[in-house]
Design a binder for these strands. Structure first.
Lengths: 224, 224
DNA sequence: TGTACATCAGTGAACGCGCGTTCACTGATGTAC
DNA sequence: TGTACATCAGTGAACGCGCGTTCACTGATGTAC
């Protein structure tokens, strides 16, 4: 074993463990989709896997740890999806880069509605790990938006104080953008979130609107 | 008693019951704020009221009925707040009417963050009464927005299909507005929701921004 | 290659807990004569 | 005004349930000689 470890390889047992962990998480996500975060239960996951409940404790120290991992994975996945979309439109900020990013943002939420909700709604009351994670996820979205947002002809007129806050935010993260672009990024993110969360809640569909068409409409005005 | 009933008055006992019901709901809301919808418990409410758990069954048939009532009340309250704000800026649609409405929307959410979440997040998995209620609440917001949105010089270019959907939506509700105003109302509502839900989740504050100043910025571009 | 041993995944019983809800009851409040 | 009766708010014990988690165990898998 130590020889394998030294060469950076993983033992069969370790691979097996990793695989089971993934299966558990997959079933947990499936349950999340069906009964909501509060309803995810260790024993029910075991049952769906054809295994006793306590067996899961070989893989996760507690139910909380499992849930936390779902949140962390969601955050990682979303960021990866956004990064990958941004990478497909290289070069300086542009309309098409922004649109690609916005579409990827929406698409990830559509593909993973329960995980999107997980990112924005604390799954447990007083869930410590969550607040930080959410801020991180927001940072990633924000940073990518900053790099995609093209200059605009329309002006933005923030108060002095707000401009200073934006500058401070940029500085704290070592970003070289200007404060007005930062504020447009916040606004764009806020609008995207509004649209996407209403869409995955089914509101547009319930009103008889085609969400995709509505999104195109919103997209054309984003960042302006 | 029957004499009182006939005159439309309520007996002391009925008034007492109504008062206790309100107290129960108040405590339930308080719990909702602290432990989330899933954590609201009949026995805990009783304890906080200095009363045994089963006592509440004199006032509510079940825990579900109590929760449903919280949702219904939230819906009613929000609509009333918006209507009252709209009533303060009478006359034809105008910028100031729109801004008053938007500010009222935000303010209600800030004053009632847990109830705002209740409106947009199903408190229970598979909660039937919720979907309809949410649609109703949305309708109310939408209708008031329609009556407040002034014409814009900037054009909106929906697809034909989307325009038809908007027209159909208006017609189904007997509203006399035009489809492009309807679409701008949807867009405004979506943006408001995005901003407000990020704000009550504490995202702007976590980034070091003054939410009020950010809102003013967003407000100036709403409905354009 | 074959045997002795260690590792460790999974089991099933058991724990304490809090939940929603029912039920038979007590006692205070309000009604009717 | 005083008494007999009905109403009904609230109690406390009890129910069945599912939860997260622990524990001693069995048996298969992998390791070392």
């Amino acid at each position: 074993v130590s020889a394998l470890r030294a060469t950076g390889q993983t033992s069969p047992r370790e691979r097996y463990r990793a695989q089971i962990r993934d299966e558990i998480k997959a079933v947990a996500l499936h349950q999340l989709a069906e009964v909501g975060p509060a309803g995810v239960s260790v024993n029910a996951i075991g049952k769906e896997l054809g295994v006793s409940g306590p067996a899961l404790y070989r893989y996760f120290a507690s139910r909380d740890e499992l849930l936390t991992e779902l949140v962390v994975d969601s955050y990682t996945d979303q960021t990866a999806a956004l990064r990958s979309a941004a990478a497909k439109v290289p070069g300086p900020p542009s309309r098409s880069a922004l649109e690609a990013l916005a579409r990827a943002y929406r698409q990830w939420a559509i593909n993973n509605p329960h995980r999107y909700r997980l990112l924005f709604a604390p799954p447990l009351p007083g869930y410590d790990a969550h607040a930080e994670r959410l801020v991180q996820a927001a940072q990633a979205s924000m940073q990518l938006l900053l790099e995609a947002l093209p200059p605009t002809d329309g002006a933005i007129h923030p108060s002095e104080a707000l401009g200073a806050q934006a500058t401070a935010w940029l500085k704290a993260r070592g970003l070289s953008s200007d404060s007005s672009t930062a504020l447009r990024a916040v606004q764009t993110w806020s609008r995207l979130h509004g649209f996407v969360s209403l869409e995955i809640a089914g509101n547009f569909a319930a009103m008889g609107f085609d969400p995709g068409a509505l999104f195109d409409l919103e997209l054309s005005s984003l960042g302006r």
